[in-house]
């Protein structure tokens, strides 16, 4: 076979149309793979639900948090908590492990565009995020008597799912920086304290004042405020402020992730 014919038949010369198909296929496999990874699926789905049942429903659904009842309030905060976890673990631990296994190396050697890999992870995070929000919402409606207008439900759902952008980007940076064994503790070390300080476990009003003031620098705080704004239980800060923080911190984390990626590429291929 001549060199030309190899090029002509290989995916390197693929028509443009199939890039989408590759992305979709990669997303599907990512999804199936994740679904079969109980170490990811079970904690990601059950922790927010468990916390919601304990704090949102267990402490009394009609107990007020500000002007909202606990059952409604905690759908927003534990939804944020869950989606944030799905993003951090999906990206951070996922990328780190796949790097460690040499799986990424293998993928880089295939003609698959590298974007498909990230696209698949983003889609997977969105799917899991949506599942978490749906699960908490159903728990809230069935067991907590939560009633919202359709508009509020949609706003709550989209704020909770799409507010996870910075967490995806941060996860990516961690995934390229951390080793396969250190990724889980590192993510937990960031995830749990930041979630607490952002008011995702206990309502932000219940935290000490200095912590409440410090929380405004944390992207998950703004993520949860966006979700709370959908049910009218936010602290009244401007929406554009939340969006700025989420977009800005995503940019910073993506920049960090890219640096980490270059460093990794240098180690592996340089």
């Amino acid at each position: 076979m001549t060199r030309t014919s190899v090029l002509a038949t290989s995916a390197l010369a693929r028509p443009r149309r199939s890039r989408l198909a590759i992305c979709a296929l990669e997303a599907w496999y990512e999804f199936v793979k994740t679904l079969r990874l109980p170490a990811y699926t079970i904690p990601t789905l059950s922790f927010p639900a468990m916390f919601y049942v304990i704090f949102g429903l267990g402490l009394g659904v009609s107990r007020p948090v500000g002007e909202t009842d606990a059952a409604t309030y905690f759908v927003a905060t534990y939804g944020t908590f869950g989606v944030m976890g799905a993003a951090l673990f999906g990206f951070g631990v996922g990328v780190a492990i796949e790097r460690g296994q040499g799986w990424l190396l293998l993928k880089r050697a295939t003609p698959m565009p590298v974007t498909a890999y990230f696209f698949a992870k983003v889609v997977m995070t969105l799917l899991f995020g949506t599942a978490i929000v749906l699960m908490l919402s159903m728990l809230g409606v069935v067991a907590g008597g939560v009633r919202l207008s359709l508009g509020s439900w949609l706003a709550l759902g989209s704020a909770t799912v799409f507010g996870a952008m910075p967490s995806c980007a941060l996860g990516l940076a961690i995934g390229y920086l951390a080793g396969p064994n250190s990724a889980v503790p590192l993510v937990n070390l960031i995830y749990l304290p930041v979630a607490f300080a952002s008011g995702l476990w206990l309502p932000i009003q219940f935290l000490p004042t200095w912590l409440q003031e410090a929380a405004v620098i944390l992207p998950p705080y703004h993520h949860s405020q966006l979700a709370l704004a959908a049910i009218g239980a936010d602290r009244g800060g401007p929406i554009w402020g939340h969006v700025l923080v989420l977009v800005g911190s995503t940019g910073v984390f993506l920049g960090a992730a890219y640096l980490a990626y270059l460093r990794d590429e240098g180690k592996t291929y340089g």
């Binding site: 554009w240 402020g241 923080v245």
Partner: peptide, 11 residues
């Protein structure tokens, strides 16, 4: 990104 982040936090 950092500028937006800080601006939002200040708001």
């Amino acid at each position: 990104g950092a500028a937006l982040w800080i601006a939002g936090a200040l708001a």
